[in-house]
């Protein structure tokens, strides 16, 4: 049933799992392997590796811009897998690839999953792949290649769909903290907290990581009190924007969060 490394890692983090997103190919293609190593060294528990896309519908301006730069740098999926393979020689942190479904479709879904598995990827996040289509057409392929999948839920997701996400997610449940695109700042509101409470009281089987708007220690700590951990993305991309030393930036960024 999917790759176990993600759940093992979350469980070992004792309710404070930190999943860090970065856009592959940003700021440079060369930085992919270095970022994976640095994040592992600095104490991240999971990596969400964004496959840059021309039309990232769920993403705010920070991730849009990093995607644009990554594509201008010449990154494509073939090159990306080479760099993941390179990083895998010296790292073991679970890597979850995040991308839009059209990218997999054009590559060929099975070809993609096979390459991902062969290069040591642990799972996928595909925000625009509907759960029912996944279950009908692709679930068996994910199982064949031992790759996990993590579905998103939002404050507007019905209990019935949350249960469906719980049943189908073999990685974690990606709890989108607010009805928004990525990259929002600000404190976690009371309304958000009651939404997190509601999810927590459902006693779901899957681990839950909260993402969208988690950008500093305070929001990370708050998120962790309601879940198994959190996902930080845009804030890390912003930190990388002016980085002169990827490894240093990564270490100091992780220290400000965890």
């Amino acid at each position: 049933m999917g790759n176990n490394s993600i759940r093992e890692k979350i469980s070992a983090a004792n309710g404070r799992a930190l999943n860090v997103y970065f856009t592959a190919g940003y700021p440079t293609i060369k930085s992919i392997a270095e970022l994976i190593r640095s994040l592992e060294d600095a104490g991240a528990d999971l990596i969400e590796l964004g496959m840059p896309y021309s039309d990232p519908l769920a993403d705010g301006i920070t991730i849009q811009n990093s995607s644009k730069i990554a594509l201008e740098n010449g990154l494509n999926l073939k090159i990306l897998f080479e760099h993941i393979a390179e990083a895998r020689k010296t790292t073991s942190i679970p890597i979850i690839m995040m991308g839009y479904f059209n990218q997999l479709l054009q590559f060929g879904v099975e070809d993609f999953l096979k390459l991902a598995a062969n290069n040591g990827v642990a799972g996928m996040i595909i925000p625009d792949l509907p759960m029912n289509i996944y279950e009908r057409d692709y679930k068996s392929l994910f199982e064949k290649y031992d790759l996990s999948i993590s579905f998103l839920i939002s404050p507007m997701t019905s209990d019935e769909r949350i249960k469906q996400a719980d049943r189908l997610s073999s990685g974690f449940i990606y709890v989108v903290s607010q009805s928004s695109i990525t990259g929002k700042k600000g404190e976690i509101s009371e309304a958000q907290k009651s939404y997190f409470d509601r999810i927590e009281s459902m006693n779901l089987k899957s681990p839950r990581l909260i993402g969208f708007g988690i950008h500093d220690r305070k929001s990370f700590d708050t998120a962790c009190t309601y879940s198994d951990g959190a996902i930080v993305g845009s804030a890390f991309i912003r930190a990388l924007a002016n980085s002169e030393d990827i490894s240093k930036t990564t270490h100091s960024f992780i220290q400000t969060i965890k």
Binding site: L129, I133, L152
Partner: peptide, 12 residues
């Protein structure tokens, strides 16, 4: 056709 949308739009 179909509806390939992020979960945040699903309810709408």
């Amino acid at each position: 056709g179909g509806a390939y949308i992020p979960e945040m739009l699903h309810a709408n």
